[in-house]
Every structure is written in C-alpha cells, then in structure tokens.
C-alpha cells in the first residue's frame, strides 16, 4: 500500500516537473515578436526616441544634400550644353558663305 502511494506521488511529481520544464522551454524558445520590440522602444522612450529623431534628421539632411548636389550637377551639365551651343553658333558664323558662282 505504502509502495503504491509512493509510486503515485512520484509519478505525479514527475508529470509536474516535465510540464514545468516544457513551459519554461517554450518561454525561452519563443522568438521575439513585434509587440515585444514596440514595448522595448516605448519602455525606454527617452533614449530610443532621441536616437531615432537624430537618425531621421540625419537622413533628411543627407537626402536634402543629395537633391541639391544632383540639381547643381544638372545645372553644371546645362552649362556645358550652353557652352556647346555658343561654340556651334560661333562656328556657323565663321563658316565662309562666299560667292557660289566662283
């Protein structure tokens, strides 16, 4: 009788231990979710949001610089085209029209 009770208690304990271990593993192996990340950012809002703002400003400034660079380079190209037009106009004006009868 005593042996039966002992075996039941051990079996129950074993089941509880297995179930607990399984639950623990599940907690550890669950990959982080989007909500977990969001929670992390909002939890540490002062530090993270400042970094995010700086990054945004930097990227905006960089994009602005790139746009201006592109526009200035485009105007540089237009200047070269104007130069070519002026050269061609000079060349035409210097072309001797002469007297076709001679």
């Amino acid at each position: 009788m005593i042996v039966r009770k002992t075996l039941r208690v051990l079996a129950l304990a074993g089941l509880l231990a297995f179930g607990g271990a399984a639950c623990g593993d599940k907690t550890v192996t669950t990959p982080p979710t989007a909500s977990a990340e969001t929670t992390l950012v909002t939890d540490t809002d002062s530090g993270v949001s400042t970094v995010a703002n700086v990054d945004t400003e930097k990227s905006t400034a960089t994009a602005s610089d790139a746009t201006d660079d592109a526009r200035l380079n485009e105007v540089d190209q237009m200047l070269r085209d104007i130069e070519a037009d002026l050269g061609a106009a000079d060349q035409d004006a210097d072309t001797p029209e002469g007297d076709p009868t001679r």
């Binding site: 104007i82 037009d85 002026l86 004006a93």
Partner: peptide, 16 residues
C-alpha cells in the same frame, strides 16, 4: 550660316 543657324543656337542656349 551667318544668321539662321546661329540664331537657333542662341535661342536654345538662352532657354537652357
């Protein structure tokens, strides 16, 4: 050569 073509170039350049 003295007027028609140079004029065309000058207008193109000034619009640019």
């Amino acid at each position: 050569f003295a007027l028609v073509r140079p004029r065309s170039r000058l207008v193109t350049a000034s619009d640019r």
